[in-house]
Write a protein that binds this DNA or RNA. Structure first.
Lengths: 221, 221
DNA sequence: GTTTGACCAAATGAGAAATTTGGTCATATG
DNA sequence: CATATGACCAAATTTCTCATTTGGTCAAAC
């Protein structure tokens, strides 16, 4: 079996199996043997990829996180206007809701995710969070964000708003968070020209962030 | 022992004891006997006031809720300008944070509140939630709230924002939620004159709501 | 060199026994 | 009499024990 290509493929298969079981059975009740069987590998093989059970399931969540980030990058690449904070928020919010595992994460669904959640944040990023602040700084420097308050405060408020929407049940329409964010954090007029100007730099920022997270993920052999 | 006055006094004492233990020991580990002893009454006496353990502790939380509402009413009575949504939110937010039990409630602190939380909402109000919507309707009818979106949607967004802030840790400064709410839900200009005009009617609304909740509470003999 | 499943220590679960606790009520008290 | 109480009991919770399962390893197979 050619090691190079197939190895990554097998890792994906194991992650698929783990993700599926995680969603249907929950963290606590999903055993490594279940995962191995579903992925058509021996139990020992799973440990050739991840050093223990927890790392495996964290990798599942990390892959999901990388997934939405990649979707975001693709969206910005296709349409520069989506760098606008309200639009970007709407897209990310909708994308997170589309992914049951992330949704479970934000809804604090302990049944399916168990004690995994607290540890995910530690796993996610060294500089992932920074990238978002830099993005807001970038917006602020181009009159695409309110400037009457320090970005540091806006970040806190934004996180609160986003978590509020993600935690609400049933989840409000994406259009509603877009509207709320637009009013709460954007200046009265948002210049299309400046959006186009800023887009490439934001794209770079997010691309770098996604690359970092992906590296974290690929520590799975 | 004169039944009239002392009965209510004793109920308060029991609630005090229960609140104290709830906070320090948590719902699961606080026994009725603990409460009775701390309140200097016999165990049976507790059951002369509440029909079971759950009702007692729900009464504790209900009393807290009534407490913040009463604070709010007093504030509006003293200063009509505090009917402004952003100001009112700031006040309520700060008041909730001041009360550890309510704070625990919003932070989903299962350790101290156990399985009490879901049931509180059922206990709180028949029309408590309606009152808030009516308040927003009132604001909207007087250009004190954005009118480019149906109040129904603003309610949802507002709840999400409020929960987001209350759930954040550490809790952001009250001034920050005030600012966020002002931008997200208020029109560009808020008329002081109209605030004064609306204040009495809002006061009536909240006074009625607090009276209803208090009745619920006084079903504790 | 790579994969695997038998193997083992440790965690988890099931069940019985012991303890605690919610809720009642006959009795005591004033 | 009216009210308050703690002894009392069924039911829930905790503790202890034992059986089973599971995470993780590694010698053997490929």
């Amino acid at each position: 079996m050619p090691p190079a290509e197939d190895r990554a493929e097998r890792a994906e298969r194991i992650l698929d199996a783990a993700a599926d079981l995680l969603l249907r059975v929950g963290y606590r009740r999903t055993t490594i043997e279940d995962v191995a069987e579903r992925a058509d590998v021996g139990k020992g093989t799973v440990y050739l990829h991840w050093k223990n059970r927890e790392e495996l399931f964290l990798a599942v969540l990390l892959r999901e996180s990388v997934g939405v980030l990649e979707e975001l990058v693709a969206t910005i690449a296709a349409d520069p206007l989506s760098v606008r904070l309200s639009r970007l928020t709407e897209i990310q919010y909708a994308n997170v809701l589309k992914r049951p595992l992330l949704r479970a994460g934000y809804a604090d669904d302990a049944e399916t995710l168990g004690k995994l959640l607290p540890k995910l944040h530690g796993k996610l990023d060294p500089r992932h969070a920074e990238a978002f602040v830099e993005y807001l700084d970038l917006l602020a420097a181009n009159d695409l964000l309110r400037t009457d308050r320090p970005v540091r405060e806006l970040v806190v408020a934004f996180q609160a708003v986003l978590n509020g929407f993600l935690g609400a049940s049933p989840p409000p329409e994406p259009a509603l968070i877009a509207d709320t964010v637009a009013h709460a954090f954007e200046p009265l007029a948002v210049s299309t020209r400046q959006l186009r100007e800023v887009a490439p730099r934001a794209l770079t920022l997010f691309t770098e962030a996604v690359a970092l997270d992906r590296k974290q993920l690929e520590r799975a052999y």
